[in-house]
């Protein structure tokens, strides 16, 4: 089994803290490669990596594709409109077809929770979850962890607030797993209708008042608010949401003076985060993007550079 010990990356829930640290440690030299003029190493030459995105995404897909190319692999990207899934080829058939054409790894983003698990069961190729339903988005959490570690020197003991629509957020869930496993204190801040049931059992605290939730925190990870949540009656209006939970300079005051602000992107400017904070000195949003490529390079290295036979015949 490769050193990483897994055939696929489906989520952070099943990883041990040392495995998460291995990915983060490996991402550091990868970031150095990104700083060179020739951003390419031959490590994954001859490997084929397919991105299969059933949900639109420029940021994550491009990040994965670049990571693969910088590692010397060949990439193919497939964007599938949701309607064709239900009318046409099933997910399993699509994936099997891709695999027999020679794909070594499939990176999948899908609105259905559990879709990557279905693929991992059906295929020998490595499966990387680029976001499934409301379940997990492990590479986003990994790059968040990397960014925090780089800026703060470590994760253990930090107070990290996750602000916004936690109930529907796979980014939040993956972050909760990663942060708690590495010893951070996690706070969720949002209205009751957007906090999932019984989540305190994961070892996090829940706050509905930002004054309490953001007090003295080291890191604030701001989640995107999706407009259709308002249509489903989960909060009364964007205006009220922004007033009570949108991150602006005033709310930042209660946090620590060196607080770090993260956002998975894309940002609804002025809604969940004010332009001043988004572009301000606390924000590491742009670095997250660079770190995302490095983390994904590390992941591809760990999953794909081991021996073929050995990885499967665990």
């Amino acid at each position: 089994m490769n050193q990483f010990g897994h055939k696929d990356l489906l989520g952070l829930q099943e990883l041990r803290p040392d495995e998460i640290n291995l990915i983060l440690d490996t991402a550091e030299p990868m970031k150095e490669v990104l700083g060179r003029e020739i951003k390419k190493v031959p490590t994954l030459r001859g490997r084929v990596i397919v991105t299969l995105f059933y949900e639109a995404s420029t940021r994550t897909r491009t990040s994965f594709e670049l990571a693969a190319k910088y590692m010397g692999a060949d990439t193919v990207s497939i964007s599938v409109a949701t309607s064709s899934v239900q009318k046409g080829e099933s997910l399993g058939d699509t994936a099997r077809t891709i695999e027999v054409m020679g794909a070594d790894a499939i990176i999948i983003r899908h609105s259905a929770t559990g879709a990557p698990h279905l693929l991992a069961k059906l295929l020998d190729a490595r499966v990387i979850n680029a976001g499934d339903g409301s379940h997990e988005h492990p590479t986003q959490a990994l790059l968040d962890l990397f960014t925090i570690r780089e800026k703060k020197g470590g994760i253990a003991g930090l107070k990290v607030a996750i602000l916004g629509d936690v109930a529907h957020s796979r980014v939040a869930r993956s972050n909760i797993w990663g942060l708690t496993k590495l010893g951070a204190e996690v706070r969720l801040v949002g209205p009751p209708t957007l906090i999932p049931p019984e989540i305190e059992q994961l070892g996090v605290s829940v706050f509905h008042d930002w004054r309490q939730g953001l007090k003295e925190v080291d890191v604030i990870n701001v989640l995107r608010i999706q407009l259709e949540r308002q249509q489903r009656g989960l909060f009364p209006s964007i205006r009220e949401y922004t007033r009570l939970f949108g991150l602006d300079e005033d709310k930042l005051q209660v946090a620590r003076p060196d607080v770090l602000v993260l956002h998975p992107g894309p940002v609804n400017r002025g809604v969940e985060i004010s332009p001043g904070v988004q572009d301000g000195s606390h924000s590491a949003i742009n670095e997250q993007v660079t770190n995302g490529v490095a983390v994904r390079m590390a992941l591809l290295y760990l999953l794909l550079s081991g021996g073929e036979q050995s990885a499967i015949s665990a």
Partner: peptide, 10 residues
């Protein structure tokens, strides 16, 4: 609906 649905993301 419960702790497991929260964890499983369903």
């Amino acid at each position: 609906e419960g702790f497991n649905s929260t964890v499983f993301g369903l």
